[in-house]
Design a protein around this nucleic acid. Structure first.
Lengths: 235, 235
DNA sequence: GGGCACAATATTGTATACAATCAAACCATG
DNA sequence: CATGGTTTGATTGTATACAATATTGTGCCC
C-alpha cells in the first residue's frame, strides 16, 4: 500500500510538519476542487503528497480544528458539510465581527495596504475573466482576511479566517445562481472608504456587503435537497 | 524510555484519540497548575498518561491550535505565554463578542439555564471558600462559556471558549493582586438580568464586567518583567 | 428472492523504530 | 581565563508495524 520512494528519501523538502499538506488541502477546498462530503483517505493522501500517514494525520487534524474537515472516529476524514444552522451561525458571526474590523482597518490602513487591497480586486477580476471561479472565490476570501490583517487584530483576524474558510464550504453548498457578481462593486466601494479613512462608512459597507452575501444563499429547510438526499442515503 | 505495560494492553480505555489527554492538560492550565512557559515533553507526558507519543502529539497539536501551548519546531511544546499585545487583543475580542452574546442568551434562556448558571456561581463560591483559587477561576470561565451556549450560537461559543482559555493564561501572567472578588457580584447581577429576559441590561452588564476584568490586569510595557527576563534567559 | 449471520477486506488508531535536529557539555586553543 | 569548534546527549520529526474497528461481500437459511 504505502510505497514511498525510499525511507531515507529527501523527506524534509517541504515546510513544517504537514503544514504543506494542510495548505494544499485547504486551498483545494477553498477553490471548490474538493466538494463537501469528499472522503479524504489517509493512504490516498499519503501517496499523493509523498509523505507518510503521520503527517497526513496531523494535517487532517489541523483542518478538522478549523471545521474544514469532519473526522469521524474509525470512519475517516471528510470535507465538512456545514448544516443550514451552521451556515446561519457563520454568517451571523461574520456580521458581528467584520464590520467593526473594517472600521479599525480604515483607521489604520497605510497606502501600501490600500495598494494590496486593490491588487486583490484586480486579481479577482482576472481570475473571473479566465473562468476560474474557484480561484476568484478564494481571492475574494483573502480580501476579507487582508482587511482583518490591516486592522492589526491578529486574534480576530484568525477567527475571521476560520469563518471565511467555512464560508467557502457554505457557498459551495447553498449558493443560488441568480445572484451574481455584485461582489466586485462592494469590495471596490469598501476599499475606497478604507482609503478615505472613513471608518463609519467602511463599517456600514462591510455590514451591507455581508448581508448581501448572506441573502444570496438558499438557507431554507426546504432547500439543499441534494445534500440531504445524499445524507439520507449514506450515513 | 518508553515503557508501557505491554503493547497489547488495555489501550482503548479512554475516550477518542488523545481527547482525554488534551482535556487533562487544558484543565491543568485553566486551574493554573501548569504555569506559562512550562515545557511539555512528549516522553514525560506519555509516561504520565500511559499512552504513546503519538496520542500526546495529537493532544499537543490540538492545544496549540487553541493557542494554549506553543509548539516550536524541533524544540518542543510549552505552555503559552501570551504577550501584552495578545492579552489586549484577547480582551478586545471578548468585549466585541460577549456582550452581544449575553443579550442573545437573555432572549433565549430557559429556567433550567438559569438554574445551571446559579449553580455555577455557587460552585465558584465554594471553591473560593476552600481556597482552591485555580478551580474557582476555571469555574468562572465556564460561566462565560455557559452563557454562550445558552445563546445557542455554537460557532461564537467556540470562539469565546478559546478566548477564555487564553484569558486564563493572561490572568496567570498579568493579574494584579489589588483587585479582588468583584467577580461574584458581577456574575450574580448578570444572571439576574438574563433571568429577567432583559437583554439590553445583560449586554451592558457583560460589557462592564469585561472592562473591569481588563482593567484589573497590568498591561503596561513596563510590567511583566519576570516573564521577559525568563524569556531573555531561556529561548 | 429477501434477510441475516459471518467472513474477508480495507481503513483507521496506536505503538514503536529510526533519522534529523537542537542544546549543552567538553576540550582545545588563543 | 575566555573563546570557539566539536562531540555527546536528549528530544522531536517521520516512517512503519501492528491492533482494533468498520465496511463490504458471500453464503446460508427462511
Amino acid at each position: 500500500m504505502t510505497e514511498h520512494t525510499v525511507q531515507t528519501s529527501k523527506a524534509n523538502s517541504g515546510a513544517a510538519s504537514g503544514g504543506h499538506v494542510a495548505s494544499a488541502l485547504s486551498l483545494a477546498i477553498h477553490e471548490h476542487r474538493l466538494a463537501p462530503g469528499t472522503k479524504l483517505g489517509e493512504d490516498d493522501l499519503g501517496e499523493i503528497f509523498g509523505v507518510s500517514r503521520t503527517v497526513i494525520r496531523a494535517a487532517l487534524q489541523s483542518l478538522a480544528h478549523l471545521q474544514l474537515v469532519d473526522i469521524k472516529r474509525n470512519r475517516g476524514a471528510f470535507v465538512a458539510q456545514p448544516s443550514l444552522r451552521e451556515a446561519r451561525e457563520v454568517f451571523e458571526a461574520r456580521e458581528l465581527l467584520e464590520p467593526r474590523t473594517a472600521r479599525m482597518a480604515a483607521d489604520r490602513a497605510t497606502p501600501d495596504d490600500i495598494k494590496m487591497l486593490r491588487r486583490h480586486i484586480t486579481d479577482e477580476h482576472a481570475a473571473m475573466s479566465d473562468g476560474e471561479q474557484g480561484k476568484a472565490l478564494h481571492l475574494s476570501g483573502l480580501f476579507h482576511i487582508e482587511i482583518a490583517r490591516i486592522a492589526d487584530q491578529s486574534t480576530i483576524a484568525a477567527f475571521i479566517a476560520a469563518l471565511i474558510a467555512r464560508s467557502s464550504l457554505i457557498i459551495a453548498l447553498y449558493w443560488r445562481r441568480e445572484s451574481a457578481l455584485c461582489e466586485s462593486f462592494a469590495h471596490h466601494a469598501l476599499v475606497q472608504a478604507i482609503a478615505d479613512g472613513d471608518g463609519a462608512n467602511a463599517e456600514d459597507l462591510m455590514r451591507s456587503h455581508l448581508v448581501d452575501l448572506h441573502s444570496a444563499l438558499d438557507l431554507r429547510e426546504s432547500t439543499a435537497p441534494n445534500r440531504s438526499l445524499r445524507d439520507a442515503l449514506r450515513p
